[in-house]
């Protein structure tokens, strides 16, 4: 197991670095070890530049140039019998190398093989849509745009799919804070009530465990309910569990167990 590193101050240089620790990698095999994949790779590399190719967990991974993505997937679909695009998304490597990695996961039902096509683009670069080849790419590419801000060329309906249309920022980027930025934290207030309501409504409470025992505006303890706004700093009275007002309710009779009849003869 990896040695513990304190997370409270990540800027501080640790006095010990585990120089010899190597992140475990899934073993990569030569493409020539599988005859079907070797033929597929040959067909791809005859037409397009293949930067790298290997087999990992019985799947061939082919890394290509980003501008070839439509051509390669067209070839895979029409000539190599990869008839399903099961997954398409991106990975944010902006911090490490300033690039997005885009992957296309493809499945051949006839060959019973899976191939992953990968390519990398810069932050400001756009990529060609493959929606013309696979309809499944439609929503995947919209999600990729929504979550990462990767612009897709020739997409029929390039619009956010999950977040609202007027949302700012791309939530799946590593730089996006999990609890939202300034825009996100005031989104519903700004939209419904306007910016001037921010002071009235106040900031979000992001501490899910916050319980203020003496705040009777927002908290009540079961069995100790008091009117809202009551001062309970000196302790609150016990409130017994009641289901109806003690003096009864207009036109509603309380159930009296004494007067009730228990039917013992069920065949009656």
């Amino acid at each position: 197991m990896r040695a513990y590193t304190p997370k409270d101050n990540v800027q501080k240089k640790p006095y010990y670095t585990d120089r010899y620790w190597v992140a475990p990698q899934v073993a990569k095999h030569e493409v020539s070890s599988d005859a079907v994949f070797a033929r597929d790779l040959e067909a791809i590399s005859a037409k397009f530049t293949v930067l790298e190719a290997y087999i990992q967990v019985d799947q061939m991974v082919v890394i290509i140039n980003a501008e070839d993505n439509f051509g390669v997937i067209e070839l895979m679909k029409n000539s190599l019998e990869y008839n399903q695009l099961s997954e398409l998304s991106a990975i944010d490597w902006l911090a490490a190398e300033g690039k997005f990695e885009i992957f296309y996961q493809m499945l051949s039902m006839s060959k019973r093989k899976r191939v992953r096509i990968k390519c990398k683009i810069d932050e400001k670069e756009s990529i060609q849509s493959v929606e013309k080849l696979f309809r499944s790419a439609d929503w995947s590419e919209r999600e990729m745009y929504d979550m990462f801000g990767i612009v897709i060329n020739n997409h029929p309906f390039m619009k956010r799919i999950l977040m609202p249309d007027d949302w700012e920022g791309f939530p799946l980027r590593k730089t996006y804070p999990l609890q939202g930025d300034e825009f996100a934290s005031w989104y519903e207030v700004d939209k419904i009530f306007g910016k001037e309501a921010r002071e009235i409504i106040g900031p979000e409470n992001r501490d899910p465990a916050r319980v203020d025992r003496y705040d009777t505006e927002r908290f009540a303890r079961l069995g100790h309910e008091v009117p809202r706004g009551a001062d309970i700093s000196q302790g609150e009275p016990d409130t017994p569990l009641v289901y109806q007002e003690s003096e009864g309710v207009f036109l509603i009779e309380k159930f009296d167990a004494e007067k009730s009849v228990v039917i013992s003869d069920r065949d009656r």
């Binding site: 977040m163 939530p171 996006y176 804070p177 999990l178 609890q179 939202g180 930025d181 996100a184 934290s185 519903e188 207030v189 419904i192 409504i201 979000e204 409470n205 992001r206 899910p208 927002r218």
Partner: peptide, 18 residues
Amino acid sequence: NTGGMFNTYATVQGVDRV
């Protein structure tokens, strides 16, 4: 009530904000 387990950018932290 509070946003619950969804302490994220996309969830309103309690409907009483709205």
